[in-house]
Structures are given as structure tokens and as C-alpha cells.
């Protein structure tokens, strides 16, 4: 099995989709000539040509609006928004157009588009280049939200997202682009909406997604030294999310910690906690604890950002709290 970086794994999925399906097109800011701000789309213009791989001007509202119109007219567009923070400018196209077209037109059309965008802090990019805004989209009926935690999943989930008939927000993590991982060569089911057990354990369930899964795994490794075996569930997608997998794990461990990098308040963790408090109430031996960012913008200075971000210490403290 070959080791591949997260960025390359995404590039490979795009390359494969462009090769296999002439209706796949790629456009966004600096994705063609420059190969993407993080090098993710490098080489795709040369290989697939300027008809299907295009640079756009800095016009986020129209980039995404055009993706919706193209998807309604026979293409499978994959567009990139350079930083997740910039999706704020494209919200109409996502929320009022892409999410609703299938429903409000009575199922006459689908909107098979993918919007790729990186979220996340840890690189001192400051308040407008670091946010994790995935809860916005998970809240909108009609959108799917995928957040892969490793190169192999990024590759397989992106292919699944492009093949999906509905609009998918595919969230990458800029701090993870250089992360290396083994490319799984199995035909393992990597479907949108299907979680994986990233680490088996018996004492507590830690549910997470995206780069935070790696924080959870690091915490679990430390906890194991104190004979605490944490099970780590990697959701892979948060809309839809694998409620059954979380409940199944909870029914074995009876304790639940939810971890994400996004602000805790009104976040994805709140939804998971509410559902488990409802359908998993009898399984819970302790209150559910959420670990996430405090309710404040992502700060710039290293000393501030490092305190802002969730980390293994905070996860360990949460696990100790639910085991107390």
C-alpha cells in the first residue's frame, strides 16, 4: 500500500473523475494555471484541457451559482472555494438554489455538484481564514456535508461525492494537506453517511470527524496508558450522519464525548448529543460532554490560537469527566 499525502489523494480523485466522466468539470479561483492555492489541482489543466478545467475570477457568488446552473444542465461541476470562510459570499447559490432545486421543482432535476473547500485553524490564518462552518450546511435540507479525516477517505469520499446526484459540500482541512496516509486498496464501503470505527475501545466513545479524528486518536493513545480504552468513531460525513453507528458504539461503552474543531455552541455536536440523549438515553451512564472551540472568532496570535483549538488534553479531560 502506497503512502499518499491528503492533497494528492484529492488530486487523484479529481483526475480519475475527469478521466472517467466527460460531464465532470472543474472550476474555481486559481485552480487551473496555478494548480490551486494548496496545489491540490496541480496538473489537471494540462491533462484535461481548458474546456473542463478553468480558472475563475474572484467571484464566489457566481462561481457557485454557475455550478448550480451547470449541474441542472447536464454537467457534474466540482468547484473550489479557496477558504471555507469565503462560502459566506456564495450562500444564496448553496442554500436557496442548490439545496432546494430538486425538492421545489418536484424532483424534476438533481443538482450533482460538489463544492470543495478547506476549513480549520492551526496555521495562524486569523479570523477570516480559519473557520469551521460545516454546521451551517448540515442544517440545510438538501445539502450533504462530507468531512474526510485521512488521505484514503478523502480520495474515496470525493469520488462518491462527485458520483452523488445531490449537492455535496466536501470539506478539506488546510492543516492536513501535507498529512501522509496509506491509500486503502480494499473495496471497503466508503459511502457518504457511513461512519467507520477508527479505533475500537470499550470504556468511552469519542465521536468526531475531519482532522479532529486524529486528535481523538492521539488522546485515545494517551488514555490507553492509563488503561482507558476509548473507541473513536469517524463520522466521515455529518449530513447525513451515521446515527446507528454512534448508538451502537454508545450501547457498548455507555459514555459519550463529541469532539469537533468548530465552535461548540449550536454545533454539530449539539445535534449528536441531542439525538443520543433521545434515542440512547437508556445507554448513557454519564452526561454527554462536547469538546470544541469556545464561542469566539478564531484568533490570530499563536498563543491565542493554541488555547482556542481543541487538543488532546481537552479530550482527555472530557473523557475523565464522563468516566468520573
Amino acid at each position: 500500500m502506497a503512502e499518499v499525502r491528503y492533497a494528492k489523494a484529492i488530486n487523484m480523485a479529481l483526475d480519475e473523475a475527469l478521466s472517467e466522466d466527460p460531464s465532470v468539470v472543474l472550476f474555481g479561483e486559481d485552480v487551473a494555471q496555478a494548480g490551486g492555492p494548496f496545489g491540490v489541482t496541480r496538473g489537471l489543466l494540462d491533462k484535461h484541457g481548458e474546456l473542463r478545467v478553468r480558472d475563475t475570477p474572484i467571484s464566489e457568488a457566481t462561481i457557485v451559482g454557475a455550478a448550480v446552473g451547470a449541474a441542472m444542465s447536464g454537467l457534474k461541476p466540482v468547484v473550489e472555494i479557496m477558504f471555507m470562510d469565503f462560502v459566506a459570499i456564495s450562500m444564496d447559490a448553496l442554500v436557496n438554489q442548490a439545496a432546494k432545486a430538486r425538492f421545489m421543482f418536484g424532483g424534476q432535476c438533481t443538482v450533482p455538484m460538489v463544492l470543495r473547500t478547506p476549513h480549520g485553524g492551526g496555521v495562524n490564518a486569523g479570523p477570516q481564514h480559519s473557520q469551521c462552518l460545516e454546521a451551517w450546511f448540515a442544517h440545510i435540507p438538501g445539502l450533504k456535508v462530507v468531512v474526510p479525516s485521512n488521505p484514503s477517505d478523502a480520495n474515496k469520499l470525493l469520488k462518491a461525492a462527485i458520483a452523488d446526484p445531490d449537492p455535496v459540500i466536501f470539506i478539506e482541512n488546510k492543516a492536513m494537506y501535507s498529512l501522509k496516509g496509506e491509500m486503502s486498496e480494499t473495496e471497503e464501503d466508503v459511502a457518504i453517511g457511513k461512519a467507520r470505527i477508527a479505533r475500537s475501545g470499550t470504556d468511552v466513545t469519542i465521536v468526531s470527524y475531519g482532522a479532529a479524528v486524529n486528535t481523538a486518536l492521539a488522546a485515545a493513545k494517551t488514555l490507553a496508558q492509563s488503561n482507558i480504552e476509548a473507541e473513536v468513531i469517524d463520522l466521515r460525513s455529518i449530513q447525513p450522519w451515521d446515527e446507528a453507528a454512534v448508538l451502537e458504539s454508545l450501547s457498548r461503552t455507555h459514555r459519550l464525548v463529541i469532539l469537533h474543531e468548530a465552535v461548540t455552541s449550536f454545533g454539530v455536536g449539539a445535534e449528536i448529543a441531542a439525538r443520543m440523549a433521545d434515542i440512547g438515553f437508556d445507554e448513557l451512564d454519564a452526561p454527554i460532554v462536547r469538546v470544541g472551540a469556545p464561542f469566539m472568532p478564531v484568533p490570530f496570535a499563536k498563543s491565542l490560537e493554541s488555547q482556542y483549538l481543541p487538543n488532546t488534553d481537552k479530550v482527555i479531560a472530557a473523557v475523565e469527566q464522563v468516566l468520573a
Partner: peptide
């Protein structure tokens, strides 16, 4: 949504061109 159809037409025209 006022104006929202405009980028949709841009995308549709892109589809015709491709």
C-alpha cells in the same frame, strides 16, 4: 431571489459550451 437566476444561466451556458 432577485438576480439569482443570472449565475444559474451562466452555468447553463457553460454546460452548453462544454
Amino acid at each position: 431571489i432577485v438576480g439569482a437566476g443570472i449565475p444559474l444561466a451562466i452555468g447553463s451556458a457553460l454546460a452548453h459550451q462544454v
